[in-house]
C-alpha cells in the first residue's frame, strides 16, 4: 500500500513544531482520514476537531499545504504526490493544542447582532424567489475559513473593531430575510466595522459552501451602510436640521 508523509503541528499556545508521520494511503482518502489514522495508531493524544466528516458541520478546518480547507473534503490524491503534506492550525485564532484553535471570539461577536425580528403583522406568505437569495447565506457551516484568511483579522488583528466575513454573511441572512423588520446598518458600521473590508475576495475563494461572500453579502451590506450614513443629500439635510435646532 502507498504511504504518505504527513507533517502535523504539535504544540500549544506556548509554541510547538511539525511532527512527521507515515500514513498508509487508501483510494479516495481525505486528510482527515490521515489524521484519524495518526490518532488511532501513532499519537492518540493528537488534538483535532471534527464531527460529520461530510462537509456539513465545518469543524475540521485547518491549513493544508498552506491553504485553509476542510480536512474532510481535502482528497490526498489531489495534493502533490510524493511530497509531504503539511497540516497546520488556523492562523487567525489562538492555538489551544495541535490543530485545535480557540474560535470563541466568533461566538462573542455574534452576540452583537440584532436577532431575527419579524415584521409586525407578518402573514408568513412568501415565495421561493424571496428566499433563494437568502438561502445562500444560510448555507454557511461556520467553518471560519473565511475569518482565517481575512487580512483585517489575520494580518491586522482588528478583532475589536471588525466582525469578519462569517458575521457579515450572518447579517446578510437576516437583513435580506423577507419577513425581517429591523435594520442592522448601525451595528454593521460601528460594531462590526464593515468599512474596514476592502473587498479582496479572499473569503469567497476559500468558502467550501461556495457562498459569494463578497459580491452577494458584503457589497450589498456596504451599500446599505453608505445609503444610510454617507448619502450626501441625507447628510446635508441632517446638517441643516441639526443647525436649525
Amino acid at each position: 500500500m502507498a504511504e504518505a508523509t504527513v507533517k502535523v503541528f504539535r504544540g500549544n499556545k506556548g509554541g510547538g513544531q511539525s511532527v512527521e508521520f507515515k500514513v498508509p494511503v487508501a483510494p479516495g482518502m481525505v486528510v482527515l482520514d490521515a489524521l484519524h489514522y495518526i490518532q488511532g495508531h501513532l499519537a492518540p493524544d493528537l488534538a483535532v476537531r471534527w464531527n460529520c466528516k461530510a462537509g456539513k458541520c465545518g469543524s475540521c478546518s485547518a491549513e493544508v499545504n498552506g491553504r485553509p480547507r476542510l480536512t474532510c473534503k481535502t482528497r490526498m490524491d489531489a495534493l502533490p504526490q510524493g511530497e509531504p503534506i503539511t497540516v497546520m492550525p488556523l492562523k487567525a485564532f489562538p492555538v489551544i493544542k495541535d490543530l485545535v484553535t480557540d474560535v470563541s471570539w466568533n461566538y462573542k461577536v455574534n452576540k452583537k447582532i440584532t436577532p431575527f425580528t419579524p415584521k409586525a403583522g407578518a402573514d408568513w406568505k412568501f415565495y421561493q424567489d424571496d428566499v433563494d437569495r437568502v438561502q445562500e447565506f444560510r448555507k454557511c457551516i461556520e467553518c471560519f475559513l473565511c475569518q482565517n484568511v481575512c487580512h483585517v483579522l489575520r494580518d491586522h488583528d482588528k478583532y475589536e473593531q471588525f466582525g469578519g466575513p462569517r458575521l457579515f454573511v450572518r447579517v446578510a441572512g437576516l437583513e435580506m430575510h423577507p419577513m425581517d423588520g429591523v435594520s442592522r446598518t448601525k451595528v454593521l458600521k460601528d460594531g462590526l466595522g464593515i468599512g474596514l473590508c476592502n473587498i479582496t475576495k479572499c473569503c469567497t475563494e476559500v468558502c467550501p459552501e461556495d457562498i459569494h461572500i463578497t459580491d452577494n453579502a458584503i457589497i450589498p451590506l456596504k451599500e446599505r451602510v453608505v445609503d444610510q450614513f454617507y448619502d450626501p443629500l441625507v447628510w446635508i439635510v441632517r446638517k441643516i436640521r441639526g443647525a436649525a435646532s
Binding site: P44, D45, A47
Partner: peptide, 10 residues
C-alpha cells in the same frame, strides 16, 4: 493513555 489532560482525544 499518553500525554496530558489537555485536549486529549485518546
Amino acid at each position: 493513555v499518553e500525554g496530558s489532560r489537555m485536549f486529549n482525544p485518546g
